[in-house]
Design a protein around this nucleic acid. Structure first.
Length: 410
RNA sequence: GCCAGGGUGGGGUAGCUGGUCAUCCUAGGGGACUGUGGAUCCCCCGACCCGGGUUCGAGUCUCGGCCCUGGCCCCA
């Protein structure tokens, strides 16, 4: 038997509806903040991603050559395509630009809990400004969206300026190593390494900075820096927004194009892959041939959100099944059409069996049965049977539709 | 790329110190039943992940692969 490719999933209707429901909540929330949806190609020129992230990621991507010999890749993330799109056709739009996307991405990685080879991201990009408000907005919006999705999570916010100031005397390679140690909380190696660089005092203050939970103290530890006023203002905005967050100056966010504020959200109930959101301020447009443009944004790992919701159940739409006798067929068709017009999910019985048999099938798959036979047909009425309670009553179409709409979800 | 634990009908399981017929539950299909039977009864469908090895004989032991689950690495 054929198997689906490794790391991919099939979604049955129950799960699909649940996903669409959450996706809808995210869309709605982003929309209320003035963000509008965009869509970019499923695959792009390979170079788009190597420019952003380096040649090393080729082995983590689905790369292929098309019939014209072009090197292409299935998108492993969507920020680069969005910024490419901005440079291609968005740079003349009034700034700032507020966009969001919901789309699937592909990475050739080892699957594990919450990590798949085809996965979905919900993300936003705010392009064209880097005021304190513009840096803070994605943090607030991201938190708002995760809240709407119904998961428990914590938000960590940091700013690259803090650590960069403390590491300003080091070479890029040395900085990378120091960040890696801090990220892994490997203080022993960190101490030895800084000793070897003749910076023995740095280790202690770096640890202080990473553990620091107050921005005023953090600025004190890090020392003076050009972004100081900006940082104070950003955190003042966050503090006054009602957002719950933890200062974490240790957030490194991998690559070099991040410029200032960085943030991550972590969900409970999620094993090793518990980060559900990552983002910050960055500059990418100039790499794709545009003007140097400040932007900020984030991406949410949609599948991880779904995993984090766990058994949180989504209540499916109510279903009406119309069961009928041959004499009632035409009236049954009219009834179905009427109910659909009222927005009710309505299925006709397709079996042509006895009413009893139709009813037993309806009981498995529907919440209500509309029984339509000769008598109902003549009277232009329907017999509405609640399949949960067994109660049934004859009534007119309007009334029956109202009854279904008004009733509690199943 | 590395480590651990797993793959038996669609789902869940028993069998696993090798020896007919592979167990049970559930789901699914068909029939009985043509105005109430969400029932009941009967019937049916359908599985040892793939390939090599050991053996008279492999679901069972062994090796490799594939896939799943979790972890490491990575995480744009």
């Amino acid at each position: 038997m054929l198997q689906k490719p490794r790391g991919t999933r099939d979604f049955l209707p129950d799960e699909m509806e649940s996903r669409r429901h959450i996706e809808g909540l995210m869309r709605e929330t982003a929309g209320r903040w003035g963000y509008r949806e965009i869509c970019t190609p499923e695959f792009e020129e390979l170079e788009l991603f190597t420019i952003r992230s380096g040649e090393g990621i080729i082995q983590e991507m689905y790369v292929f050559e098309d019939k014209g010999g072009r090197k292409l890749a299935l998108r492993p993330e969507i920020t680069a395509p969005v910024l490419r799109m901005y440079v291609n056709e968005g740079h003349v739009l009034p700034k700032p630009i507020r966009w969001f996307y919901f789309a699937d991405c592909f990475r050739y990685e080892r699957p594990q809990k919450g990590r798949y080879r085809q996965f979905w991201q919900f993300g936003v990009e705010l392009i064209g400004t880097d005021t304190p408000m513009a840096e803070a907005e994605p943090v607030m919006l991201g938190s708002d969206i995760l809240k709407a999705s119904g998961i428990s999570f914590v938000t960590h916010v940091g700013h690259l300026g803090l650590m960069n100031t403390m590491l300003s005397g080091l070479l890029p390679e040395e900085k990378r190593k120091v960040r890696m140690c801090l990220d892994k909380k490997d203080l022993g190696t960190l101490g030895e390494y800084l000793d070897s660089l003749k910076k023995p005092d740095l280790a202690a203050s770096l640890v202080d900075l990473v553990r620091c939970r107050d921005i005023t103290d953090a600025l004190e530890i890090a020392g003076d820096m050009p972004e100081k006023e900006q940082i104070i203002e950003i955190f003042s905005i966050l503090d006054n927004s009602g957002l719950e967050y933890t200062l974490n100056a240790g957030i490194a966010r991998g690559l070099d194009y991040y410029t200032g504020l960085v943030f991550e959200c972590f969900a409970e109930n999620l094993g090793a892959e518990n980060q559900v959101l990552g983002g910050g301020s960055y500059r990418l447009a100039h790499l794709f041939g545009g003007k140097d443009t400040p932007s900020s944004g984030f991406a949410i790992g949609f599948d991880r959100v779904m995993v984090a919701r766990g058994g949180t159940s989504y209540i499916p739409e109510k279903v009406v099944r119309i069961v009928f006798t041959p004499e009632g067929r035409n009236w049954a068709l009219e009834t179905a059409s009427f109910l659909r017009g009222r927005g009710i999910r309505t299925e006709m019985d397709l079996s042509s069996k006895s009413l009893g048999s139709q009813l037993s099938m309806a009981a498995k798959a529907a919440d209500y049965a509309f029984i339509v036979g000769e008598r109902e047909s003549r009277a232009r009425m329907v017999m509405l049977k609640n399949l949960g309670s067994g109660v049934q009553q004859e009534m007119g179409l309007e009334e029956a539709a109202d009854e279904v709409i008004r009733s509690d979800p199943r």
